[in-house]
């Protein structure tokens, strides 16, 4: 019975967040238009094979769409007291946070699916769909959890948004989205290994250009580790707010 309450709560919260916060022009702009514009700008500066930029474009869409409204769905609701209302329902605090994470995940999934389908059809790409799906789904969960962690770490909406920009833009430059990691200085290459987007980009590149291969297991394992590293402290920090 309890797990059914949890599952229902997670689903309803995610759905409500989608409707209330995500499917709105600001989130769509952040989640899809911004990565597209960024990629086009990069392409126009260095024209070449646009297909090579598609994994990076998808990686950016995953990051920016999942985290587009995370600060609002958590910090804003904490401030208004609406998050407390959710906590009064027969659902655990972990369930409420997972509902928030799933809202970002679902929105990211829609945005990423649109961008991926558009790129594949327009450029005639033939990715390995299974590996593309697996790496994308896991990455969506990881970055939505990252957004949740940064949001519960601070109190204000603007703090969360500002704080989230640091890893987002750092990752765009260091994780192989636009520049290959191998072209970076040694120190930055080492740093890129500590950032989750590196494994997303590697996995996406493999699924587009190499097909499923053993190295992808390493990327999936690394992303799974990041998922735990983001999710557990996020739950713990939220619980601390209500101690």
């Amino acid at each position: 019975m309890m797990w059914r309450d949890e599952m229902r709560g997670i689903y309803e919260i995610a759905l409500k967040d989608m409707r209330t916060y995500y499917l709105k022009p600001p989130a769509i702009s952040w989640g899809m238009v911004f990565p597209l514009a960024w990629t086009l700008a990069f392409y126009l500066r260095n024209p070449g094979d646009f297909a090579e930029l598609v994994p990076g474009l998808l990686a950016m869409t995953i990051v920016f769409s999942t985290t587009a409204a995370e600060a609002v769905v958590i910090n804003f609701e904490l401030r208004l007291g609406t998050l407390e209302r959710l906590l009064l329902a027969p659902i655990s605090m972990t369930g409420v946070l997972l509902g928030k994470v799933m809202g970002g995940f679902l929105f990211g999934l829609i945005m990423t699916a649109i961008v991926a389908a558009g790129a594949i059809l327009a450029l005639g790409l033939r990715p390995d769909i299974l590996s593309l799906t697996i790496i994308s789904l896991l990455s969506l969960l990881v970055f939505s959890s990252m957004g949740a962690l940064f949001s519960v770490s601070v109190r204000e909406v603007f703090e969360a948004q500002t704080l989230l920009n640091l890893p987002r833009f750092l990752m765009v430059f260091l994780c192989g989205v636009v520049y290959p990691v191998s072209a970076l200085p040694d120190g930055l290459q080492l740093l890129s290994r500590l950032l989750p987007l590196t494994y997303t980009v590697q996995g996406l590149k493999a699924s587009f250009f190499q097909g499923a291969e053993p190295s992808m297991m390493r990327d999936l394992a690394a992303l799974s580790l990041f998922l735990i590293l983001f999710l557990l402290p996020a739950v713990s920090l939220l619980q601390r707010r209500f101690r």
């Binding site: 007291g81 609406t82 407390e84 209302r85 009064l88």
Partner: peptide, 19 residues
Amino acid sequence: SQARRHIGMVPDQSNLYDE
């Protein structure tokens, strides 16, 4: 958690969704 099924709470500030 079980008690919450039977509890209603109205906080000092109205906290439903404006949207």
